[in-house]
Amino acid sequence: MKKYWFFIFFFSLQSFSTETVFRRYLSQQDVIKTLLSIFSLPYQVEVLFKEHSACKQIPASLFEYPQIPLELGFVDLDSGDTSMTKPDSGYILYFEKCIDSLYLTKFPSPYIPSESNSAFFTPLTLKKVHAQAQRQQIQDYNQLDFSLFEESLKLEIIQAVFLKVFGDTQMFPQELFKKSITLLTQVSDKNRQLQKPIFFQQAVLLILKSSIISEQFLSY
């Protein structure tokens, strides 16, 4: 799956190769804050601050550990908060791992939505997913076969994730939105050929990553 992120991200960067629009990218500390706000998690989430966590934060005493930003792919960091100017593969990989880890915190398995963990979807959308769960006779929502969802519900879920990431429908990068749908269809088709279902969890994670790990979201 990893190759997709590199492809998507660098494809979007390509258009800037001859004449660069000077952009800044989220710094390491801002990444943590931003991801936590997307996942509606409190700032002091224990798992994030553990040294071996995927979302390892650069310690406050950064100057004693100058190698850490480099390990995480934040190449241009002189200090704990300097924005980087050019993302590299380490930077992208950091997001991949961190999003996986946050997803598991937010949507543990078995995942049965409740008021506290349904921050991504409206009650109406969840009602529809619930109906799907009854139809498929599966209790853990993460294990639902996403390809069996109605097309309108699929689109609703993709929109809900994008809304959570970009905060406003007007702020959706339409091209990326379409690309994410195509990507999901491709993965779904591939899985069908392999006679494997694409689970609800995989689908949501895929959309989450394609929206977050993008030029449009990470730069400002």
Binding site: L26, T34, S37, D168
Partner: peptide, 10 residues
């Protein structure tokens, strides 16, 4: 993002 380190909420 510059002043608070995260984007505005919905």
């Amino acid at each position: 993002l510059i002043l608070r380190g995260h984007p505005p909420s919905s």
